[in-house]
């Protein structure tokens, strides 16, 4: 059977011109910024600097917090914390800077602490420059984990659906991951160990979207009597509600974390919102893009698809499409 692939490509480009251009520009800018400036790493990767200050237990904690916050703001980076806790007769304050400070900076901050808190020099008992907790090993391991996941799910998709689905999972996961990394690079978001967990979460969401769409196509036996382009249109159209519901739920959760979480977590929580946006964009734009542009060129496989459910009451394709 001859199919006019060029026509479906052109149609797809025509309908989604703006989305494709925006995504392409965004990806190019993100990759460029990421490659030139790298990522902004938090203390887990960059190491940190910590000052410990001992003050009397009768000290006014609120006043200390106010002054310490001022010092952190004056001399700090983006991921700084100040913690106060009681040990025996003393209250100890730990101020953590997200980078390792040189000696001049250390002296500057020590002087600021002494002046602001009106304490003896000896009370600033400890200053340490701590090396990174997480090594580059984590980068490599996370990349391997995602790779293994993509390979496993693609193999599964190949056998359950077809080669086109496997290809779709691979390409959409790569584009999704690059988009998420681009957001981090462009917005200069602080990257910690949680960021890696979110990359894994993003890939799981993208694969989830793919599987939801393919299941829709498979369960309605759409591909057996139409081409790839209309099959994916049908799949996306009928899965749209579920995919939107899922990703909007993740987005709301991220928003709640941004609103309620402590300041240091707000940056991390922003990433939850971004994974929802990227996963939804990939499901609604990238998957059909991959199918329409790349997969329509593939030879249509013979599918052994059965319509699930009872025949007399199964949902009619046209009915579902409404």
């Amino acid at each position: 059977m001859h199919r006019d692939f060029t026509k479906s490509n052109k149609e797809y480009f025509k309908k989604n011109k703006i989305a494709i251009i925006v995504l392409s520009v965004f990806l190019i800018v993100g990759i460029l910024i990421g490659s030139i400036f790298g990522f902004k790493e938090n203390f887990e990767f960059a190491g940190y600097s910590e000052f410990t200050v001992k003050v009397g237990s009768e000290a006014d904690n609120n006043a200390i917090i106010k002054n310490i916050t001022q010092i952190v703001n004056d001399y700090g980076g983006d991921f700084d914390t100040a913690s106060i806790y009681d040990v025996g007769d003393n209250t100890r304050i730990v101020i953590r800077y997200s980078n390792q400070l040189n000696e001049d900076k250390q002296n500057e901050i020590t002087t600021a602490i002494i002046t602001k808190l009106n304490i003896e020099e000896s009370a600033v008992s400890e200053h340490v420059n701590v090396s990174p907790i997480v090594s580059t090993k984590d980068y490599v391991y996370t990349a391997c984990a995602i790779l293994i996941l993509i390979v496993l799910v693609s193999i599964f998709a190949y056998f359950r659906y077809n080669g086109a689905s496997a290809l779709s999972i691979i390409i959409s996961s790569i584009i999704g991951t690059l988009s998420f990394l681009s957001i981090g690079a462009i917005l200069r978001l602080t990257i910690g160990a949680s960021y890696f967990a979110m990359i894994v979460a993003l890939n799981v969401l993208i694969m989830y979207s793919n599987i939801a769409i393919f299941e829709e196509i498979k369960s309605t036996n759409w591909l057996s009597n139409s081409d790839y382009a209309s099959a994916i249109n049908h799949g996306v159209k009928n899965s749209k509600f579920k995919l939107c519901a899922l990703n909007i739920a993740v987005l709301i959760m991220g928003l709640l974390f941004v609103l309620f979480a402590p300041s240091a977590l707000k940056y991390v929580s922003l990433n939850i919102m971004f994974i929802a946006v990227v996963a939804l964009a990939v499901a609604l734009y990238v998957v059909p893009f991959v199918w329409s542009v790349f997969i329509t060129h593939c030879k249509k496989p013979k599918l052994s698809v059965k319509v699930s459910g009872e025949k007399d009451s199964s949902v009619d394709n046209n009915q579902l499409d409404k």
């Binding site: 090993k137 996370t142 496993l152 799910v153 160990a193 894994v200 799981v204 989830y208």
Partner: peptide, 21 residues
């Protein structure tokens, strides 16, 4: 299928060096 995907992803993450993952 969807839950199996999560189980597989979770299983792989258990071997990561970072406590967070």
């Amino acid at each position: 299928m969807i839950n199996l995907l999560f189980v597989v992803a979770g299983f792989i993450c258990l071997f990561m060096p970072s406590m967070g993952i």
